[in-house]
Amino acid sequence: MPREAEPSLNEKQFVIQALQENLRLDGRELDQYRPLELSFGDQYGLADVKLGKTRVLAKATAEVTVPYTDRPLDGIFTIATELGPMTSPAFEVNRPTETEVLLSRLLEKTVRRSGALDTESLCLVAGQKCWSVRVDVHVLSHDGNLIDASCLAVVAALRHFRKPDTSMEAGVLTVYTPAEREPVPLSWLHSPFCVTWSFFGEEGEIAVLDATWIEEQVRVGSCTVSLNKHGEICQIAKLGGTPVEAVALLQCVSVSLTKVKEFSDLLDRKLAEDLKRRDKGGFMAELRAENDR
């Protein structure tokens, strides 16, 4: 397996010394994100997140299947992550690395287990038919902070997604094509976002947001906090690493909340823009006589 080249000792020390002087290599503040770009595709449910050089694409799809026998009233919701050789030659297909496992667990806990999507609303006929919603996360380019970018992409894709409308009449289930009926959005309960802190220094006393790849290589620990804008924690994961003062962690969580509100506003704004772009003046505008043929 080709390994990712490790940064040299001097490179590492340079990054760390700079951080101890409150300086980041790209001139950001310690708690500043890189420029975040979010765009949606032409299809529903396709979100593309660019965070500096990190780029993640998430695509939501839905199909009708049979629900699990032990949960007949729930639909199926899965998040699939893929870190392939496209991201870096160090990642191989069908052999999940630790990074990938932790990423997919985090997304699972943040989005699925926190109940962001109402899975009961995906049920069509109890025990027989339900929607299976699947989000595929493709990491196109890895320059650090995959978690935050992927989480934003997943949430954006799901909120942008429209599933075909259905109706039940006299025991007959009808799934309408987009031409027949406008697709409907998912029943979405809240939007969680991940904020990942990286810790540096002997005692982990320097906390940095949105670490780049090189910063991730030299950090001594990390902590991912998932919150929604209502101030609810969906998940916290500090999985080992250099110990950090409890008070500093609480501080991190409260800063995370303001970041999450920014994410939430950004997503709302982008969704509204996208809606406006798709819906030029509404249905009536399309029927005007002065329109081009």
């Binding site: 101030g231 609810e232 409890a246 008070v247």
Partner: peptide
């Protein structure tokens, strides 16, 4: 010490309750 090595929360909870739970 009060230095936290691992902190894992897997359930939904108000941020205000975190401090008490952590303590």
């Amino acid at each position: 010490s009060d230095r936290v090595v691992v902190l894992v929360c897997e359930s939904r909870v108000q941020v205000s309750r975190l401090e008490g739970m952590l303590a």
